[in-house]
Design a protein around this nucleic acid. Structure first.
Lengths: 203, 203
DNA sequence: TAGATTGTTAATCGATTAACAATC
DNA sequence: TAGATTGTTAATCGATTAACAATC
């Protein structure tokens, strides 16, 4: 069995989103063909994905919408609130702290961290703490995912702090490409790279 | 010949970045092996990538750093300033408007667009214009790349406006997955999806 | 020359797709 | 039953890697 990769899991998230929409419209069952159209993938891909995660349907009868949603919630950890922290509370970090979409998707930013005393504010609605208190906070609050929005120069230092903490996954917005290791997964989002890439493909 | 895909172009950007660093350190030549190590890919991949774009080296002598930088600048369109606009100047759009990294990478945000009169300010350092003036502005200023940071509900409407304008590439931050067409490339950056993905892989 | 590196061809790997038996 | 859909196996496709001849 091939293990689920990042793209597969992204498709699961997208199936879930479509299914929730379908449920709200009163649909009770759905065919692989319908989901395929909604996502722009093949029906075989949908069935393959479901098969990989043990999501079963009925020959001829398709899949039960509620069943799929429930199973996907479980697989994606959507039964409970997903709590994250944001390290680096500059412009970008701040924007993400109030990101409405996170709230709607059940993702809660429980705290921000920074080193600038002018920014630190433990009394704010989303408290901003000193970076030095991060390991303790993460351990105490059982947070395992962090967004990194620090300046390029601080990237490696902050990364080390995160690796030594209980953080298990990082969404890295710095241009420094971080590798991750067996304890900590890193996804790099390099905005300048994305723009550069678009320029290439529109030439 | 297989055409260059997104990942290949991303690697080109990363080679370029490493090469600029090497040049500043006084290096004049580099081997595929060195670049491979720097990026965490195989040396064969480096040579294959270069071969695909006609970047040549010398058997035994490696590649000339300056030559590679120059060629990559040309391929990636880095000889001139890369001008973009930002559509939707809420928290996230605003943060990206002042993104220092863009400046350092030669990417210039020439204007923002919004529909909220309270936000519109044509006199600001980066002017924010009314959305209705976008097609005219884009045509007059020859801008071809746009970042979309509008609310989910406005995504499809704004997308249509962009498709009818001279915009050729879009970096889409709304959760609505846009497909793109033969005239316009779309890269979707779905932050909530990225977070969800991290939660899956850290279970 | 001997040793090392490029550039390319062939092999491998993994993901997607096509096909179809099972079956409702 | 006949028709339609799942679930899985085999085929395809594309990207990465290994191997090596060419050659500096």
């Amino acid at each position: 069995m091939t293990a689920a990769n990042r793209e597969t899991v992204n498709r699961l998230s997208n199936y879930r989103k479509v299914l929730i929409k379908l449920k709200s419209l009163g649909f009770q069952k759905v065919f692989s063909d319908n989901l395929a159209d909604a996502l722009g993938v093949s029906a075989a891909q949908v069935r393959k994905d479901f098969s990989l995660f043990g999501l079963t349907g009925n020959k001829k009868g398709g899949y039960q919408v509620c069943y799929l949603i429930d199973k996907l919630n479980e697989i994606l950890g959507k039964h409970e609130e997903q709590r994250i922290i944001i390290v680096g509370c500059g412009k970008l970090g701040n924007a993400l702290m109030g990101h409405n979409r996170f709230v709607r998707e059940g993702i809660k930013v429980v705290a921000g961290f920074d080193t600038d005393p002018a920014i630190i504010d433990p009394e704010a609605r989303v408290p901003i703490h000193d970076l030095s208190t991060l390991p303790e906070f993460v351990a105490g609050e059982h947070v395992r995912i962090a967004i990194m929005t620090v300046p390029e120069g601080a990237a490696n230092h902050v990364y080390e702090i995160l690796l030594e903490s209980d953080i298990r996954g990082i969404l890295n917005f710095t241009p420094v490409q971080l590798k991750g290791n067996e304890h900590c997964v890193v996804h790099n989002v390099n905005l300048a790279l994305e723009i550069e890439n678009l320029f290439y493909f529109t030439k």
